[in-house]
């Protein structure tokens, strides 16, 4: 039985690279996001380059009421689903997101929508006693900062959710991996000021797939972000609150 992987948010550059790394080792893929036209192009590309089977369908993380039917049709096409990569996310304008009417979308896209679809994935894999869930969170979820705390809070909530899920599914042998990328050169960050140590999506995609061969639960990508965040997390709050971050 070959590997079969569902990629949620498959039009993101990180997801594309992750899908390519899976396809390079022969995995069949199911791509999902809101942009069907792009999904079709990406699906053709993966079929031609890697000769693998690729399905795709529309999926909107915010439309949680559609998730059950969506996941059913994924399973109808891929009954032997091996795992799921949750890559969707939304940064938006973090200044505007201070207004809850805007911020709610950030929370729904990064966290609520993720909690909804992940609950279905977990219920599917748990009784089968196999499978993996890779969730792409962010270093931004490690500590709240004035410049992006709405996104950070949603990603932080996602990290906690994945942590709890890992704890729940451990007994049934389902792996849950939390990926925390630093800056990656994608549409989300293109042209933003103040970026440093920016990684390429290809590099991140390959590393995401490689984590399956390792023991790690929470993976910072590239690795040095673990230490950068270790320092940032340990700045005492009385000092941190004075900083312009």
């Amino acid at each position: 039985m070959g590997e079969a992987v569902l990629i949620l948010g498959a039009t993101s550059a990180i997801a594309r690279a992750t899908a390519a790394a899976f396809a390079a080792r022969g995995a069949a893929l199911y791509l999902a996001s809101r942009d069907l036209d792009e999904l079709q192009r990406i699906a053709s590309d993966l079929r031609i380059r890697y000769g693998v089977e690729v399905h795709y369908a529309a999926f909107d993380a915010e439309a949680t009421e559609t998730h059950a039917a969506f996941f059913q049709s994924v399973l109808a096409n891929m009954p032997d689903l091996s795992g799921v990569v949750l890559a969707f996310g939304y940064l938006g304008d973090q200044q505007a997101a201070r207004d809850f009417k805007v911020g709610a979308k950030v929370i729904a896209s990064n966290f609520t929508g993720a909690a909804s679809i992940l609950s279905l994935c977990a219920d599917h894999f748990e009784p089968l006693q196999r499978g993996f869930i890779i969730g792409i969170s962010s270093v931004a979820g490690d500590r709240g900062r004035q410049s992006n705390y709405v996104y950070g809070a949603a990603k932080g909530a996602l990290s906690l959710y994945l942590q709890g899920l890992r704890n729940r599914l451990y007994a049934s042998g389902v792996r849950v991996i939390t990926i925390k990328p630093g800056f990656v050169d994608t549409a989300m960050t293109y042209g933003l000021p103040g970026l440093f140590l920016v990684a390429s999506p290809q590099d991140i995609g390959e590393r995401i797939v490689r984590t399956l061969g390792k023991q790690a639960d929470v993976v910072y990508l590239p690795w040095f972000w673990r230490y950068i965040m270790l320092i940032i997390k340990h700045v005492p709050e009385p000092i941190f609150k004075r900083m312009k971050l």
Partner: peptide, 9 residues
């Protein structure tokens, strides 16, 4: 550079 998909072969 990012708009680089192979569509039909």
């Amino acid at each position: 550079g990012r708009v680089n998909r192979l569509l039909d072969f």
